[in-house]
Design a protein around this nucleic acid. Structure first.
Length: 933
RNA sequence: GCGGGGGUAGCAAAGUCUGGUCAAAUGCGUAGGCUUCAGGGGCCUAUGGCCUAGUGCCUUCGAGGGUUCGAAUCCUUCCCCCCGCACCA
């Protein structure tokens, strides 16, 4: 439990920030900085995972403020899409799981009824979510908060405008689209609407026709239409009953479930009758490529799967091969079905593909590998099918059998490159039809099996448009990425992205302006809304009827006639001041959709100068080293974190958890330890409040030197959004520096300590703002630390020599302490090093080739200090200045300065002159290391 | 399979781009000691192995091979882990 004091302190500053409008951003003369994270979806409350992304933006925003930038950091609420409305329906249905979720959020029984309405979720969760965010001390301009969907007619108008612009540019088009569908509810079923079958998607199959002598077609389904040339026969289940249906004037024979699925996918299917599998056995079908093959019986077929019958490619399918072999070995079974045994025995696999490492008959290879004896060994065969498909699809190439079959010679072409081409050719020739099937069974919330439905009239955003892609690539080039390494991923996504179905029939959202049976899908409506933030707090005053396309065209694009609305100039000015977006941060999962969409849409709608400037991407939070999951029960709500640790400890712990693309870890023991650490800062402030900064003595020079090094490095880390590094340096490293300083000088100069503390607070302010404000106040400073400038960095105060000296003394102290000895003798051992440097200079004058230098030096007596020389060469190669080498005088001065200090630890300290007594043994390292005696 | 990110001491994590100051920062954990310290406290020390205990030696940075006077770092082969591969927030 965080102390009451902590909570009181934090709410005190939050109230002050809010009362004094500390983070409300308005255009002024300063350079601006506009940063955002994706607005949260309000079907619940924030947890530890949400805080990381938010915190990164807040820390960056606070840093930028301290750099003198005018920072806009707004936040809104996302309600578009199906999850809330689906959840509301579940509440209405009295579903226990859903009700428990609500109760876990603290919803009372009496309130449950209102959650049957989607709008209530927003009304309920947005304010509570906001309270949590505020309690974390986010520096957000709350005047600009809003919600999405038609519940907010102004925003709704903005989204409609966005789509009108896209449509004008030809980026929204109509087409067909397969979706996972609930036949009971008549809606698409996303992952969250499923009882089971998460992750299953529609998969394109190809229906292949096999013509019976009487003109009817047996229809098989396959994932590998490319293997058509290896077809040797078809298999039907002799005991099954197949359906005979009319499809576009043809008579097709297939299993009943398959026929139903066809109907769902827009095929005109009329049932005509039934056919027994056994009646088909023994007939001959005509195939693509003008061949005739036998219909054979097989027992492994399931009428529910595919069309309930298959065509057989025994060279490429282990199922087919083993079925064939089993049949060939069972004369009785053949006879029972009236087959000519000789004819059956004469069927051999046809080799059609070259599969590396396996050869031309992969089916046989895998049967041998897994020692499959019967077509009923389903487990092994299922495993084989997966393995073989993967291996073959990605690695195999077409053999010379494919030379002259299609319009194009496919010999040597990889399967994955030409599979869809083969399908096209088969479809064109009338032998095949595309259709979809689920990759696995899906049970919907309504407790029925989901199907694939091909939605007609679906609207797409045409991300496949090459010109558009090219523009987006251009935008990526101009964008700064944090970390830089995600750039490659964005490049890839832009290339890979295909048309995106951007409308839904159900859920919440904005109606498509020209076709209002459709709602705009949630990822598509949230691509350029950052522009809306710039005017969100003012646009609500604009009468709705004025918010037409012309209005937004002028406001955001400066196009067309100026609207009559009197405040339009102000709105336009505010937009022009804040846009473009300077920084957007989100989890890495959004790279392949939202963040890339954002770039696409900005390219399509805005001129180049309004494209986003930088994008930050971060990993997924883990908790004490474990993945977050409901089942582990380690999804910690922000409320709990605040109660347990308080805002500052939570903030700094999560940001200390990781940086770059690594998954940040929430380390609860670190969070616990932060409490006392923060109190320590306040104690220091209290201790130093009566001292003035700036009247330092020569003895403090080292402290200044280290301080400015830290300022330099922390600033650089902040610029890279490497917040973990910044925390490590400004909190721990600087803490150690101060500790050493205090140990070293008997009477610390409190004026200088105050200066260091102030700098430290300024650097920590982005992470632990409440504590820093409090300490700032204790020190008697005016104004918010949140509004105070970052500590000035002065490179002239950095003196590597001083550091060398302090390191020497520190080494000395370590050694002495370790030895426990009371009498210490120190050799001024830097002598050899000085000589080495001289020698080095001489050689370098002759040649700058590192190899020559090495060789030359190795010939001198100094080779025994090879390590040191190599180090010098490195400096030379890199064009840097060699590290500081103290003179003997320096060395003595340092020792003198530490005399008292050393005497305290050791009884007596004796300094030996160079050359006096036993000189240090070989490979003497750093100067001044003591020999003990 | 494709795209991206990783593999460093008990844990987390820095170091890798730009090879040498690296037996490897820092934090946590653990152990010991100190502080008249009471109740998430502070400070010091230790935390790869070995012993002759040192300015010592040996062995380490997923595994193997290579380049180099020198490799956690560069090249190469391989193994393993994570994320994404969509119509969903």
């Amino acid at each position: 439990m965080a102390h009451e004091e902590v909570q009181k302190r934090e709410s005190k500053w939050q109230k002050l920030w809010s009362d004094k409008q500390a983070f409300e951003a308005n255009p002024d003369k300063r350079q601006k900085f506009f940063c955002t994270f994706p607005y949260p979806y309000v079907n619940g409350l924030p947890h530890i995972g949400h805080t990381f992304t938010m915190m990164r933006v807040d820390a960056f925003a606070r840093y930028m403020r301290s750099q003198g930038r005018n920072v806009l950091f707004p936040q809104a609420w996302h309600a578009t899409g199906t999850p809330i409305s689906a959840a509301a329906e579940r509440v209405a249905d009295g579903e226990e799981k859903q009700i428990k979720i609500l109760k876990d959020f603290g919803v009372e029984d009496s309130e449950l009824k209102s959650f049957e309405k989607p709008e209530h979720w927003i009304k309920y969760f947005a304010p509570r979510y906001k309270r949590d965010v505020q309690k974390l001390g986010m520096s957000i301009d709350w005047r600009r908060e809003f919600i999405t969907t038609n519940l907010n007619p102004h925003y709704d108008a903005f989204i409609r405008w966005q789509f009108l612009v896209l449509k004008d540019k030809g980026y929204v088009k109509k087409g067909k689209h397969p979706v996972v569908w609930c036949p009971k509810m008549n809606t698409p079923v996303g992952d969250h609407d499923r009882i089971s079958g998460e992750g299953e998607t529609p998969q394109e199959f190809v229906l292949v026709k096999h013509k019976l002598p009487d003109g009817r077609f047996m229809v098989s389904a396959t994932l590998r239409p490319d293997t058509i040339l290896g077809l040797t026969n078809t298999f039907v289940n002799p005991d099954a009953e197949y359906t005979e249906v009319d499809v576009d004037g043809e008579t097709w024979i297939l299993g009943e479930p398959g026929a139903k699925r066809l109907a769902q996918q827009g095929f005109k299917v009329t049932e005509k009758g039934t056919v027994k599998g056994s009646d088909l056995v023994g007939q001959k079908t005509k195939e693509f490529g003008d061949r005739e093959v036998l219909v054979l019986p097989a027992t492994f077929l399931d009428a529910k799967v595919g069309t309930g019958l298959v065509h057989s490619v025994p060279s490429e399918s282990a199922d087919d091969l083993i079925a064939l072999q089993n049949l060939q070995a069972d004369a009785g079974f053949c006879k029972k079905h009236g087959l000519d045994m000789a004819e059956v025995s004469n069927i051999h696999p046809i080799e059609i593909l070259d599969t590396p490492e396996i050869g031309k008959n992969p089916a046989q290879f895998y049967l041998d590998k897994y020692e499959v004896k019967s077509q009923n060994e389903r487990k092994k065969l299922d495993q084989i099918r997966k393995e073989l498909y993967k291996h073959s699809f990605y690695n195999a190439t077409f053999s010379n059998k494919y030379k002259a079959v299609f319009d194009r010679n496919l010999t040597g072409v990889p399967i994955q490159e030409a599979m869809s081409y083969v399908t096209d050719q088969l479809v064109e020739a009338g032998w095949a039809v595309r259709y979809y099937e689920l990759t696995g069974p899906v049970v919907t919330r309504a407790n029925v099996d989901a199907i694939v439905k091909v939605v007609e009239n679906q609207w797409f955003v045409t991300y496949s448009d090459l010109e558009w892609k090219e523009q987006t690539h251009k935008a990526i080039k101009a964008t700064k990425f944090y970390p830089e390494s995600v750039r490659a991923q964005f490049e890839h996504v832009v290339n890979w992205l295909n048309n995106w179905a951007c409308t839904r029939e159900h859920g919440m959202g904005t109606r498509l302006p020209w076709d209002d049976q459709w709602l705009i899908e949630s990822l598509s409506d949230s691509t350029i809304y950052m522009a809306y933030y710039t005017v969100a707090h003012k646009i609500e005053e604009v009468p709705l009827e004025q918010l037409n396309k012309k209005f937004f065209d002028y406001l955001f694009l400066g196009k067309g006639e100026k609207p009559a609305y009197p405040g339009i100039d102000k709105l336009r000015d505010e937009f022009l001041y804040w846009y473009p977006l300077d920084f957007r941060n989100s989890g890495k999962d959004l790279v392949q959709n939202h963040l890339t969409f954002m770039l696409f849409h900005h390219c399509a709608i805005f001129p180049e100068e309004h494209w986003p400037r930088s994008i930050g991407v971060n990993g997924w939070v883990t908790v004490d080293g474990q993945k977050m999951s409901k089942s582990l029960g380690n999804v910690i709500p922000v409320e709990t974190l605040l109660e347990e640790y308080g805002a500052d400890a939570t903030r700094i712990t999560i940001l200390n958890g990781g940086e770059g693309m690594d998954d940040p870890n929430w380390d609860s023991s670190f969070a616990k330890g932060m409490g006392p650490k923060l109190e320590g800062l306040l104690r220091q402030a209290t201790d130093l409040k009566d001292y003035k900064r700036g009247n330092d003595t020569p003895a403090d020079a080292w402290l200044h030197s280290r301080l400015h090094e830290v300022i330099r490095d922390v600033s650089a880390a902040m610029e890279r959004t490497d917040f973990r590094t910044a925390i490590q340096l400004s909190l721990f490293e600087l803490g150690q520096v101060v500790k050493w300083y205090q140990a070293r000088v008997k009477v610390p100069n409190k004026g200088v300590l105050r200066e260091v503390l102030e700098a430290q607070l300024l650097m920590l302010q982005p992470f632990i703002p409440h504590t820093c404000e409090e300490a700032w106040e204790i020190l008697g400073n005016d104004g918010f630390i949140s509004h105070t400038k970052w500590p000035a960095y002065d490179s002239s105060r950095i003196d590597p020599g001083l550091d060398e000296a302090e390191n020497m003394i520190r080494d000395l102290v370590d050694k002495v302490r370790k030895s426990g000895s009371k009498d210490v003798t120190i050799y001024l051992a830097a002598e050899w090093k000085r000589k080495a440097y001289e020698e080095f200079d001489k050689v370098v004058e002759k040649s700058r080739n590192p190899f020559d230098i090495t060789k030359a030096l190795m010939a001198t007596p100094l080779k025994q200090h090879g390590d040191e020389l190599q180090r010098l060469i490195k400096f030379l190669v890199k064009g840097r200045i060699p590290s500081y080498v103290p003179t003997e005088k320096d060395e003595r001065a340092w020792l003198a300065s530490a005399e008292d200090f050393l005497a305290e630890i050791a009884g007596s300290v004796k300094v030996l002159e160079a050359g006096e007594g036993d000189s240090p043994k070989k490979n003497s390292g750093l100067p001044g290391k003591p020999a003990l005696g």
